[in-house]
Amino acid sequence: MAYNLLKGKKGIIFGALNEMSIAWKVAEKCLEEGAQIVLTNTPLSIRMGKVEAFAEKNHIPLIPADATNVEDLNHLLKESMRHFGGKIDFILHSVAMSLNVRKKRSYDDLDYDFLQKTLDISAISFHKVLQCAKKLDAINEWGSVVALSYVAAQRTMYEYNDMADAKAMLESIARSFGYIYGREKKIRINTISQSPTMTTAGSGIKGFDSLVDFADRMSPLGNATAEECAGYCICLFSDLTRKITMQNLYHDGGFSSMGMSYRAMHQYNKSFDTEKD
């Protein structure tokens, strides 16, 4: 069901790759709720994914940009404002990648060059987006910027590796920049700590399917899906959340408040029964 929550609003969506991407679901929901959008991703991701076909089908501009490159970001923002005929109202940052994870380097044996790339792509790029937007005065007052995070920023999660450090930095940037942007421009900045979601990137993490199952057993409401996350993003982009800023907002079915659930304990006890057999 559509509510026209974003009617007349304009925004930029970073990170849509294919139908599995949360950013893809957000883009679909933005259109459904009446927004105009621009899509962006790296040239390599555009070639590898299906976002070009999505943009063509929906008559949406697709502007290639490396989120770690300030020149690319300035070009993206200027072209977006030119396309819209004015400033933008919202941005989704859904950008993350770890070479240490991809190369299966454990946390106590990190490649530090890889670590620098993890932090630059997954966290510092968020600061670059915000700084470029502020210097260009690209976002309307009461605009909204959202980045996707994960509970590993606060808790140790098996095999999440250096991405946990990146998510912690991401959330810190949202708070620090949120204060400045809110004070000066009334622009709000938040992060969403989403349930583990089986995206193309997530599926590359060792044991991720088990993590998804564990979180689902622990969460009283079950895992939040990509589609449900898109709905939450829409709410944060809308005028209904004008006074929410500098927050890390858990969207995880209650997982972040749990210690042990009945389903998880039941499965745990069953493992001992199996051992006896």
Rank of each mutant, 00 (worst) to 15 (best):
Q194H: 14
G49H: 02
A55N: 07
L119Q: 10
I187N: 08
H266K: 15
F84M: 07
F255I: 11
C132G: 06
W24P: 13
M169Y: 11
D89T: 12
I22Q: 08
G259K: 14
A164D: 05
A152P: 10
T40W: 00
K7Y: 05
F177A: 09
F54Q: 13
A215L: 05
N223H: 02
I180K: 12
K7E: 06
D89C: 12
N223Q: 02
L221I: 07
S256K: 13
F208V: 05
Q247G: 03
T199P: 06
K206F: 08
E141H: 10
V38M: 14
A147C: 04
A27I: 05
E184S: 07
L99D: 00
G222Y: 00
T225V: 09
F177H: 04
I189A: 06
N74E: 09
Y181R: 03
D137H: 14
Q131Y: 09
N223G: 00
N4L: 06
S172A: 13
L136P: 04
I60N: 12
V51Y: 01
L73R: 00
I13A: 13
Y268D: 11
I13T: 08
R263L: 09
I91Y: 07
V38T: 14
T40K: 01
V95D: 02
M48L: 09
L92T: 04
I12C: 10
E227A: 13
I60V: 15
T197C: 08
D162R: 06
E52T: 09
M246E: 09
A166E: 04
D108P: 01
S125V: 10
A264N: 10
A16H: 05
I205F: 12
S21A: 06
E184Y: 02
M169K: 12
I124T: 15
D137P: 04
V145I: 09
M169V: 15
S261I: 12
K117C: 03
Y158H: 12
F14S: 14
N269K: 15
Q131L: 13
I189K: 03
R263F: 01
D239Y: 03
D113N: 15
L17D: 07
S210K: 12
F255R: 14
L119P: 11
A201H: 07
M246V: 08
S219H: 03
Y112L: 15
E227S: 10
G253F: 03
I60Y: 12
C235N: 02
T197W: 01
T40H: 00
L76N: 11
N41Q: 00
T42E: 04
I187G: 04
D111A: 08
I91F: 09
S21T: 01
K135P: 05
L5H: 03
S122H: 03
E71M: 12
G34F: 13
L99P: 00
F126H: 12
A166L: 08
D165N: 12
L211E: 09
A123I: 13
A264I: 11
I13G: 15
L240R: 09
D137V: 09
P64C: 03
P61W: 01
K29H: 06
T118C: 07
R155Q: 11
P196W: 04
L31H: 02
L148A: 02
G231W: 02
S271K: 10
T241K: 00
I234C: 08
K103E: 05
I192P: 11
T42F: 00
E228A: 13
L73K: 00
L73G: 07
Q247Y: 02
V129P: 04
V129Q: 04
A152M: 04
M246H: 07
S176F: 00
V70N: 11
L5N: 10
S193C: 14
D277H: 14
M97S: 08
Y232C: 13
D209T: 06
